[in-house]
Measured scan of single mutants.
Amino acid sequence: PPDDERKKAEKAARSGNEEKAREILERLGYSEDEARELAKRLR
């Protein structure tokens, strides 16, 4: 489910793995720019 994926992205971002967070968010349908912004904010 998307919620689980989003949680994974948050966890990745918090542990400093912004790249992985961005990949997950892009898979969820965010654009590259949106995903980058979100990954930064989740950190």
Rank of each mutant, 00 (worst) to 15 (best):
E18T: 09
E32G: 06
L28W: 06
L28I: 08
K7G: 09
E19Y: 09
K40N: 09
R6S: 05
G16N: 05
K20Q: 10
A39E: 01
R14Y: 08
A21E: 02
K7I: 12
A9I: 05
K8E: 14
R22W: 04
E26G: 06
E10P: 04
E34S: 05
E19M: 13
R27S: 11
E19T: 12
E10F: 13
K40T: 08
R27I: 05
S15D: 13
E19G: 07
R27G: 10
E32A: 14
R14G: 03
E5A: 10
R22M: 10
E26I: 15
R22E: 02
E18L: 15
R14V: 08
K11M: 15
R6F: 15
R6N: 04
A9F: 05
E32N: 07
E18F: 14
K40L: 09
E37F: 11
D33A: 14
A12L: 15
L38Y: 08
S15T: 09
G29T: 00
Y30M: 08
R36A: 07
E32R: 11
D33R: 09
E26Q: 15
K7Y: 10
K40A: 12
R6T: 07
L38I: 12
L25D: 00
S31F: 02
A21G: 03
L38R: 01
K11T: 12
R43M: 12
R41Q: 09
L38A: 03
A9R: 03
R41I: 07
D33I: 10
P2F: 14
G16Q: 04
R43T: 07
G29D: 01
R14A: 09
P1E: 13
E10M: 14
D33F: 09
A13N: 02
N17M: 07
E37W: 15
E23I: 11
K11W: 12
E18Y: 14
R36E: 05
R36M: 07
G16V: 03
R41C: 11
D4Y: 11
E37S: 12
R27K: 13
D3Y: 11
P1Y: 14
E37R: 14
Y30T: 00
E23H: 10
I24F: 05
K8Y: 08
S15A: 14
A13E: 03
K20Y: 12
R43S: 10
E34D: 10
S31E: 03
P1N: 15
D3M: 11
E18M: 15
E18N: 04
G29A: 00
E32C: 10
L38E: 06
K20F: 10
K20P: 03
K7S: 11
E34I: 06
A13Y: 05
R41E: 04
R43Y: 15
D33V: 08
A21N: 03
E5L: 15
D33H: 10
N17I: 04
S31W: 01
E32S: 12
A12R: 04
L42C: 07
S31P: 06
E32D: 06
A35T: 03
G29W: 01
G29P: 00
